[in-house]
């Protein structure tokens, strides 16, 4: 018994190290001073550098705003497309369903740069590049596979028995949707929302190319610095990036959990 516990905790520690160590390096990079080889840890820590950058760097704040704005738009667009798609895939049979459910993954299978160059070409043609709608469309394209998959799994698990019962008892289609389907698929929607948020926040090339540089998000600003080897500035962006990605997710998660417990 105790052997099992030890075994399990060793595995957990290994996983924790694998995940946390790279994160720790990023945090140290953003606050560390005089970090020379072969020192394992920085000579001194200066949290001031991080907060100075955060409060005085106008670019950091404006890119944070751009990131959040795009993520918000992408979430709405993605859910509006993904939810009906998922319901159709989970509850209805139609010719070509198998093929369709595989095609949902295409945006992840086709190499990004080839896809983006051509999307950019089409978007330029229809004057969509550089617009808010154009950029969230491209983000949505990359979010859809995740969102659809999460929602379908959730819906398949529940099956449509409740809906059938509801309709039998005389509920209208809209009533069935709002009172049965929607409340039941809340966990799926929650997962899809979080995934969409993360994927949208991390889009680099799509935002830069289709956005014409009008939307300088956190990842767009961060990327050139890592290329140039300006690791400290890149790390400041990285830490901010992690914070704005993780904190809202954490808050949302705990809010929904509390609600579920109460309900």
């Amino acid at each position: 018994m105790s052997r099992k516990v030890i075994q399990r905790s060793i595995i957990i520690i290994i996983f924790a190290l694998l995940i946390l160590m790279p994160l720790a390096v990023i945090v140290f990079l953003s606050v560390g001073q005089q970090w020379h080889y072969p020192r394992l840890f920085p000579g001194s820590l200066d949290w001031g550098y991080y907060f100075r950058q955060l409060t005085t760097n106008v670019e950091l704040l404006s890119s944070l705003r751009a990131s959040l704005l795009l993520a918000g738009g992408t979430i709405i667009l993605t859910l509006v497309i993904a939810y009906p798609t998922a319901i159709a895939l989970a509850y209805y049979t139609f010719p070509g369903k198998r093929l369709f459910s595989v095609c949902v993954y295409l945006p992840l299978i086709v190499p990004g740069i080839a896809l983006l160059t051509n999307i950019d070409f089409m978007m330029i043609k229809y004057s969509l590049t550089g617009t808010f709608f154009g950029v969230i469309c491209v983000h949505t394209l990359f979010c859809l596979p995740y969102a659809v998959k999460l929602l379908v799994d959730n819906l398949v698990l529940l099956k449509n028995r409740y809906e059938v019962t509801g309709r039998n008892l005389g509920a209208s289609p809209w009533q069935t949707f709002f009172k049965i389907t929607l409340p039941l698929s809340k966990p799926g929607l929650q997962g899809a929302l979080m995934m969409t948020y993360i994927v949208s926040m991390t889009q680099y090339l799509a935002t830069l190319m289709v956005g014409n540089g009008n939307y300088l998000t956190l990842s767009v600003r961060m990327f050139p610095f890592t290329q140039e080897g300006k690791y400290q500035i890149a790390a400041v962006y990285g830490v901010t990036f992690m914070l704005v990605t993780l904190v809202p997710l954490f808050i949302l998660d705990s809010l929904l959990n509390r609600q579920r417990k109460r309900g």
């Binding site: 950019d120 043609k125 190319m209």
Partner: peptide
């Protein structure tokens, strides 16, 4: 606008192919 030159040329080529006379 921070954009690497490969992406810039890519975009300019796309603009040209789409017959746009005015870009960004």
């Amino acid at each position: 606008v921070p954009m690497d030159i490969d992406t810039i040329l890519n975009k300019l080529t796309n603009e040209k192919e789409a017959n746009k006379t005015s870009g960004n």
